[in-house]
Amino acid sequence: MNFRKQFFEGLLTKNPVTVQLLGMCSTLAITTSLFNGLGMGISVTIILICSNVLISALRRVIPSQIRIAAYIVIIAGFVTIVDLLLQAFLPELSQSLGVFIPLIVVNCIILGRAEAFASKNGVLASAVDGLCQGIGYTVALVVMSVLRELLGSGTFGGGLLGGGQGYTVIPDPYPAMKIVMPVGGFLTLGVVIAFSQWLVARIEKKNKKKEAAKV
């Protein structure tokens, strides 16, 4: 198994958010503090691993005509389990993510990976795929959250560090409040994707040079 390649793909070259442009609803909506971004990222990663494993294990049992329906039911099951667990054990997170927890069901990343990977590969490989894609998703969310929180509320680590308030970096009248509002979501994601496109282009250029040197 080339774990390194899968990891690198999930993180950058095939990152679910910045390259595949999947699951953008939650990416835009909840990335207003580190707590939210990290919480959402971890929830999705757990669901992604579980659904990938189960779907991969059942891939010979489920007839292809009803596979999408079966996947959706399985995914909805895991999402509800995570939803209930969050409500019971992390009520603050559940409150601030609100309806976006059950909406993970229609997050295209999970159905996308089920269809593109788990339905064709073994259990272990699917688990690793879920983990790598999940990490890629989480990293993208955390980057978005940190940027938006810093520029919009002027704090770092809100809901998590510094007694739940986060550490103030930019004092009160200066943060651009619009960045934590919907507008900021679009703008920040645009800039983050632009940066990742630039990074990917640079790496590809380097690889080409290396290959050219080899020849």
């Binding site: 442009l21 619009k178 509002m181 919907p182 507008v183 900021g184 979501g185 679009f186 703008l187 994601l189 645009g190 800039v191 994707i193 632009a194 940066f195 496109q197 630039w198 282009a201």
Partner: peptide, 21 residues
């Protein structure tokens, strides 16, 4: 170049969202 495609689309969407605010 790095803004071509989705980034510029998202930024336009952001401006539309600003208008809706």
């Amino acid at each position: 170049a790095c803004f071509k495609g989705f980034p510029i689309t998202l930024i336009s969407a952001g401006l539309l969202a600003l208008a809706f605010m």
